[in-house]
Design a protein around this nucleic acid. Structure first.
Length: 272
DNA sequence: GGCCAGGCTTGTC
DNA sequence: GACAAGCCTGGC
């Protein structure tokens, strides 16, 4: 069990920001997270965070996963003071961090995300994990499932994942699993590429377009230059930035700004 | 070659 | 009926 005081970190905001679909609220302060074959519980009260794991696992994995070595205050301070909308959005989502998630998990998750909502995306992912992942037990003896490997889905008929409610996206996931399992696309190479190269390579995968490639680059490769434009972001940009979003000003942290806007558009309006 | 309309699963509002 | 972290295909 590790206790830390962390600024700019809010597990609830990270959970609701729609970058991770395997994070679950257990009670008012506690969340459980599954990443690859690992499981973690996190509790938070203000700046105080408790990570229920051993110190070496925290240092070697979860610290990087939650991006705790990155200074988000610096990004927020770089925001144009005249830009009231972005200032408000960044204050509203001040506890958001860009997670370092697994590349393969993000490819599949954002293939499923298209023309879909976050609740249903979560359900689809739970379904494929239960059906094609491996069963594990957490420290409390509760069962959870690992994320299915490319190999475990590569041999399926293209329609097989419709059973998991993926709909027409089933063939995207199966064909992509095949491309990766066959070595046609090398994930390790993509991990070492620049943003531009990685995006281009990812877009060779069946079902991966510009928006999905940007999400993968941002949430698993830590390319902060990626700025995924979906319907919500499109609306915000049309409404608040008719001249276009000032990408040049935010060079190197465009993706962080995108997350502030996305979260504000999705959650800010509910609360008012 | 680029551009654009239409189609695609399914659940929720 | 419209829409949800869109993409592919075919026709021009």
């Amino acid at each position: 069990m590790i206790t830390k005081t962390i600024k700019c970190f809010d597990i609830a905001q990270i959970c609701d920001s729609g970058q991770c679909f395997r994070m679950l609220k257990k009670d008012a302060q506690t969340y459980s997270v599954i990443a690859g074959d690992r499981h973690l519980e996190v509790a938070q009260k203000g700046d105080q965070c408790i990570f229920y794991c051993e110190e070496d696992e925290f240092e070697s994995f979860w610290k990087g996963y939650f991006d705790l070595d990155t200074d988000y205050i610096k990004y927020r301070e770089s925001i144009d003071q005249q830009d009231k909308y972005l200032k408000e959005a960044s204050e509203f989502g001040s506890g958001i961090r860009i997670l370092n998630q697994d590349l393969w998990e993000m490819i599949v998750s954002f293939l499923i995300s298209q023309q879909n909502n976050i609740i249903r995306i979560r359900r689809c992912i739970d379904n494929i994990c239960e059906k094609y992942g491996e069963e594990r037990k957490d420290a409390n003896g509760h069962i959870y499932y690992t994320f299915p490997t490319p190999k475990s889905m590569a041999c399926l008929p293209e329609d097989a994942l419709k059973e998991c409610n993926l709909g027409y996206r089933s063939k995207y996931v199966v064909r992509t699993a095949k491309s990766v399992a066959d070595g046609e696309i090398d994930l390790d190479e993509i991990r070492h590429m620049s943003y531009g190269q990685a995006k281009e390579e990812l877009m060779k995968l069946y079902g991966v377009g510009e928006k999905v490639a940007d999400c993968i680059c941002l949430f698993s490769l830590h390319h902060f230059e990626a700025f995924p434009v979906d319907t919500h972001i499109r609306q915000a940009l049309d409404g608040y930035y008719p001249e276009g979003f000032p990408m040049d000003r935010y060079k190197g942290c465009e993706g962080v700004m995108q997350q502030y806007i996305f979260y504000y558009e999705l959650m800010g309006k509910k609360i008012g």
